[in-house]
Structure formats: structure tokens, C-alpha cells
Simulated assay, not measured.
Amino acid sequence: MKAGSRTGTAAAIVGALALSVFSAPTAQAAGTGITVSSVVINGGRPIVVGASDVKTPPVTFRVALPSGYNTADPFPWHAEPFLYHDTTAARGADNGGLYMESYTCYEESTRAARCEGELRIDPRYGLDANGDATTWKIGVIARLFTSSGGLKAEEYATLSGGVQVKRWAKATVNASPEPVAKGRTLTVTGSLKRADWVKHAYTGYGSQSVKLQFRKKGTSVYSTVKTVTARSTGALKTTVTASADGYWRWTFGGTSTTGTATSSADFVDVL
């Protein structure tokens, strides 16, 4: 998912950029003097990606240019942070890196700009293993060009911090029988699944603690009734005593690799 080309005007610069909060780069090749700072991705929250849907979390950052370059002319320079898994930023740039598709910069001075855009993550192409659900390293590529368009200077940097990418989870619920007599047994079933980035489908997430919650009709707050461990297939099942009309749902708190999930509510009429 390599970033595209840039265009720009005196008021805005369009380019390709990536993620999280990091300090000024340390050159690993010829220094460019370009500084990228104050980068925030997705409001500082983990990026949770499903089985096939494209995710576009927002990103903001600032860029400062060396002497002789200015924000009104975007063509002689380029700065592109990215996420990578490889051993170095230089290798990671070409081996499964995650990039911004575009960004827009607004001039703060002739050599400084505030930028904003969206990261594009397509799990069908950018994520090809479930092990990608981890903390990604942050790197940056910076380049300066000659007046004829040739490469003048280039650097790859490894930056501090990281960005957590998680697998999307989803839960379902069904309570029966409906309606049910007061005092009788109500069986609540469902499932917990999460995105599989190899199969590009949702598969069962077993051995996880999932809470069964109830909200009485006419109220707005759910209460946890019990906690159940999902079976190896992700199946959920338990029984409760029917006591009042209300809504039942399953809720999962997430893990280090998987996002949270809450099912829709199933209303049960108690006679």
C-alpha cells in the first residue's frame, strides 16, 4: 500500500503520511534537515481493523523544513512517516509498511506547516497475518530533490513509540423462549468472533471471558448478570431465571490483540 504522489499550493500541500506521536528523526543516511513532529493518530487510541473493511483513522502532525525550502513549494521535498515490522526502518519501508494515502498541510510560516489527513489500512492488502495484531514500529522517510527532480538527499529513521493495531471483534445474542413465563428458565446463547486477516473472515474466538448483561424495560443502564467463558468455537451459552421484561446482551472487554465487542440487544417479554 505504497503512498501516492503529492500536489500542493501556497495554502495546502497534499502528500503521503503516517502515524502516532514521535520526536524529530535521527538520520540513517544523508541528512535532509526535515523535521516531523506532534503526530497523533486516531486520537491516541489503538487502530482496530476488521476482516475486509478499509479503515481510515485520522492523523495530525507538523513539519518543519530546512533553510532554502518553503511550504509554498512542496515539490523539492517529501516527508513520509510509516509503520513497519521489519528490523530497520529502511527495510520496513518496502516490506509490509502501512502508509497514509494523502494529507493536507496548512502553512504556519514559510518553513513550517500543520498537517492533517487519514491513514488507509486495507486488511486485504496491508495485513496478511494475524500476528500483525501487535504494536507496530514507527519510521519515517525524508527526501530532498534537485531543481531537475533528481534525488539530492534521503534518510530513513526509526522513531520512538509505536502504534497498536488490533483485530475487530463482534458478538451476537439470542434469548429464548420468547415470550417466557416469570420464574421460568431463559436460555441465552450467542457467539464471539474476531477478524481473521488470513481468511479475511470472522472466526470464533474461544476461551474468552464474556459478560451477560441485562437492562430492565423502562431503564437505561445495563447490569452484569454473570460472566461466561466462550467455547473453543466462540459459542456462548448460559441460563438465567426470567424475572422482568427487558433486554439481554453479551459484552467482551477485548485483549491486547483484539478490540472490544458488544452484541445488539434481544428483548424478552416476561409473562
Rank of each mutant, 00 (worst) to 15 (best):
G4L: 07
G4D: 07
S5C: 12
S5Q: 15
R6T: 14
T7W: 10
A12Q: 01
A16W: 06
A16V: 09
L17M: 12
L17W: 12
L17E: 10
A18G: 14
S23C: 01
T26C: 01
A29D: 14
A29P: 02
A29V: 06
T32E: 01
T32A: 02
T35N: 09
V36P: 00
S37H: 04
S38V: 03
V40Y: 03
I41M: 12
G44H: 04
R45F: 10
P46I: 00
V49A: 07
S52G: 06
V54H: 01
K55M: 06
P57E: 06
P57T: 06
R62N: 13
R62P: 00
L65W: 06
L65Q: 07
L65F: 08
P66T: 00
T71W: 05
A72Q: 12
P74R: 11
P76C: 01
A79L: 06
E80R: 12
P81R: 08
F82Y: 15
L83Q: 08
L83I: 09
H85Y: 11
D86G: 09
T87Q: 10
A89M: 04
R91V: 14
R91F: 11
A93C: 04
N95L: 13
G96N: 12
G97T: 00
Y99K: 10
Y99L: 09
Y99R: 12
S109H: 09
A112L: 08
R114H: 12
C115K: 03
E116D: 10
I121G: 04
Y125F: 14
L127W: 11
L127C: 13
L127M: 14
L127P: 08
D128T: 15
D128M: 11
D128W: 13
A129M: 09
G131E: 04
A133N: 15
T135Q: 08
W136K: 05
W136E: 03
K137F: 00
I141D: 03
A142P: 02
L144W: 04
T146K: 03
S147Q: 02
S148Q: 00
S148T: 00
G149N: 09
K152Y: 09
A153W: 08
E154S: 13
S160T: 14
G161C: 14
G161I: 14
Q164E: 13
V165P: 08
R167G: 10
R167T: 09
W168Q: 15
A171E: 05
V173L: 02
N174W: 00
P177F: 08
E178T: 06
E178I: 09
T185A: 15
T187W: 11
T189W: 04
R194G: 01
R194Y: 05
K199N: 15
Y202S: 07
Y202H: 11
G204R: 02
G206H: 02
S209Y: 05
V210F: 03
L212H: 04
Q213L: 03
R215F: 08
K217L: 08
G218P: 09
Y222P: 04
S223A: 13
T224V: 15
V228D: 08
R231M: 03
L236C: 00
V240T: 07
S243T: 13
S243L: 05
A244D: 12
G246K: 02
Y247I: 04
W248A: 07
T251A: 11
F252I: 11
G254Q: 13
S256F: 08
T260K: 14
T262L: 02
D269N: 07
V270E: 02
